[in-house]
Amino acid sequence: MQGVVKVNSALNMRSGPGSNYGVIGTLRNNDKVEIIKEVDGWYEIRFNGKVGSASKSYITIVN
Rank of each mutant, 00 (worst) to 15 (best):
5 V>G: 04
54 A>V: 15
33 V>H: 01
49 G>W: 04
32 K>M: 14
21 Y>S: 03
36 I>T: 06
60 T>H: 14
62 V>Y: 09
47 F>P: 00
49 G>I: 04
51 V>W: 07
50 K>N: 09
57 S>M: 14
63 N>W: 11
46 R>W: 10
15 S>Y: 06
19 S>H: 14
10 A>R: 14
51 V>H: 08
29 N>R: 09
33 V>D: 00
29 N>S: 08
51 V>Y: 10
25 G>Y: 07
36 I>H: 03
38 E>S: 06
11 L>H: 05
8 N>D: 13
5 V>H: 02
16 G>T: 02
20 N>M: 11
53 S>H: 15
17 P>T: 04
1 M>R: 12
18 G>C: 07
37 K>L: 08
30 N>W: 09
30 N>P: 03
43 Y>N: 00
38 E>M: 07
63 N>E: 13
40 D>R: 09
59 I>V: 07
30 N>K: 08
20 N>P: 03
3 G>E: 02
2 Q>M: 15
50 K>I: 14
34 E>P: 01
2 Q>T: 13
58 Y>F: 13
19 S>R: 13
19 S>G: 10
11 L>E: 05
47 F>T: 03
55 S>A: 13
12 N>T: 12
30 N>H: 10
42 W>F: 07
27 L>R: 01
5 V>L: 04
37 K>V: 06
31 D>K: 03
28 R>W: 08
13 M>H: 03
10 A>F: 15
32 K>H: 11
6 K>D: 05
36 I>L: 14
42 W>V: 01
22 G>N: 13
11 L>A: 11
2 Q>P: 09
21 Y>P: 02
30 N>A: 08
41 G>N: 08
47 F>I: 08
58 Y>L: 08
23 V>K: 07
44 E>T: 12
24 I>M: 06
47 F>Q: 02
62 V>W: 07
55 S>N: 14
41 G>R: 04
29 N>E: 07
5 V>D: 01
37 K>H: 09
10 A>M: 13
27 L>M: 06
20 N>S: 12
50 K>M: 14
38 E>C: 09
36 I>N: 02
36 I>R: 03
56 K>H: 05
55 S>K: 15
26 T>C: 13
29 N>D: 09
63 N>F: 11
54 A>R: 02
61 I>W: 04
14 R>P: 01
1 M>Q: 11
11 L>Q: 09
35 I>W: 02
8 N>E: 13
19 S>E: 15
22 G>F: 09
45 I>S: 00
32 K>P: 08
40 D>M: 09
12 N>V: 15
40 D>W: 07
11 L>V: 15
38 E>T: 05
41 G>Y: 05
27 L>D: 00
57 S>C: 15
42 W>R: 01
61 I>C: 08
52 G>C: 06
40 D>G: 12
26 T>N: 05
48 N>S: 07
12 N>M: 13
3 G>K: 02
45 I>Y: 01
33 V>S: 01
6 K>V: 12
35 I>E: 00
50 K>E: 08
17 P>K: 03
61 I>M: 08
62 V>R: 06
31 D>L: 04
34 E>C: 13
27 L>F: 01
52 G>Y: 06
27 L>W: 01
14 R>G: 02
18 G>A: 04
31 D>G: 03
14 R>V: 05
19 S>L: 15
8 N>A: 12
52 G>I: 03
31 D>C: 07
47 F>H: 09
50 K>A: 10
47 F>D: 00
33 V>A: 01
1 M>V: 13
20 N>R: 11
60 T>A: 11
60 T>Q: 14
59 I>Q: 00
62 V>L: 13
63 N>G: 13
47 F>S: 04
1 M>T: 11
21 Y>W: 09
32 K>N: 09
50 K>Y: 09
20 N>V: 08
7 V>R: 06
4 V>F: 07
43 Y>H: 00
60 T>D: 11
23 V>W: 05
44 E>M: 15
49 G>P: 02
9 S>G: 15
6 K>Q: 11
3 G>T: 02
37 K>I: 08
38 E>Q: 07
52 G>W: 04
12 N>D: 14
35 I>P: 01
16 G>I: 03
60 T>F: 14
15 S>M: 08
13 M>E: 01
34 E>G: 04
33 V>T: 01
50 K>T: 12
27 L>N: 00
57 S>P: 06
42 W>C: 04
54 A>T: 07
49 G>L: 05
12 N>W: 10
39 V>S: 09
12 N>C: 15
6 K>R: 14
15 S>N: 09
38 E>V: 08
